[in-house]
Design a protein around this nucleic acid. Structure first.
Lengths: 172, 172
DNA sequence: TCTGTATTGTTGTAAATGTCAACGATTTAT
DNA sequence: ATAAATCGTTGACATTTACAACAATACAGA
């Protein structure tokens, strides 16, 4: 079950204005609707807007947000197993298989049997994967800055802190 | 193109703990990874977590987040056209057709030709749609509270304000 | 007014994602 | 030692997404 509030039907709009991050909403008459008090809606919408920019920035490296997020974690030094990736990214384990398959085929990551548990396979970046990650990270960072250009640096930091607290509590 | 960072593969986990909104991430060893500084990632993850709760709350009314969001706007009094719904919800117009079809079949909304533009069709709630919306809204509100239980009321308000500012600027 | 162009809702289709059940290989518990 | 659980993997199926085409309507310019 489930689904998300909405998708990423923004491409054209984004290519046109691309200024205030989003005007594309047909003037925005609906901005006064009560749905804009719904945090879930706001999260989905900002995420969708950012996703377009992110995927566009990552396309240069033949990555999408999905594969990029796996690459990040493969570069974390934490040696995550596929199961941990699935849990953390809220993806079905079978989707992780496909993502790692592709990255491995491209020589960006390698699978290795877990040290304590040989069922598990850890995913770590190769030198090539690390190098590509460094470049992709810069592009993704620029995309994020653009998506959040309406906020000051302080405001971005505050939002980040609140999101992290909502997800994992204040203990981080 | 596009896609989102990740999906909603959380159902089982959520049914088990459901306490701190999310522990389900296999202890959370990966919480220390740099990806948790990525706002896009945080938005996606919090949204995904909230989505599960939201859809579960709405299932009682045979609604999903998608159809619920259309129902909200149909109840807004703004008489949105399908095109405006598509733009605002970042959905393809053809998906709006399906959503409105279903809601109309259930007698919750009606289509009416636009007054100035007869190509356009406005979507407004019926009495039944309004009644169902009032109930669904309460359930969705409870779900949101639960999803954000890690934050104080002030913090929720701050997050809301920041999200709105990022999306539409400080002018609202 | 007429003519071409753009827009709206709609249908259909192909690709991408999500969901779920099963399997061998391992680990863990009894 | 046996049974149960877990990990990665495969495959099958449903849902969602992205996109092109179309009739009806609007609109801008000659």
């Amino acid at each position: 079950m489930s689904t998300i509030y909405f998708g990423n039907y923004l491409e054209q709009a984004m290519t046109i204005d691309m200024q205030g991050v989003k005007q594309g909403d047909a003037e925005g008459k609906l901005v006064t609707a009560s749905i804009t008090n719904d945090v879930g809606f706001l999260l989905a919408k900002l995420h969708a807007a950012g996703s377009v920019l992110n995927n566009r920035a990552l396309a240069e490296f033949n990555l999408k947000e999905r594969s990029y997020s796996v690459l990040i974690l493969a570069n974390s030094g934490l040696e995550p197993t596929q199961r941990e990736l699935a849990d953390f990214l809220s993806l079905d384990p079978s989707q992780i298989v496909a993502l790692v398959d592709e990255l491995e085929k491209r020589g960006l990551v390698v699978r290795a049997p877990g040290k304590q548990d040989r069922r598990a396979k850890t995913v770590t970046a190769t030198a090539a994967g690390s190098k590509l990650f460094d470049q992709a990270r810069k592009a993704a960072s620029r995309a994020e800055t653009q998506a959040l250009q309406g906020l000051s640096a302080d405001e971005v930091a505050t939002m980040k802190a609140l999101l992290r607290k909502a997800l994992w509590g204040g203990s981080i």
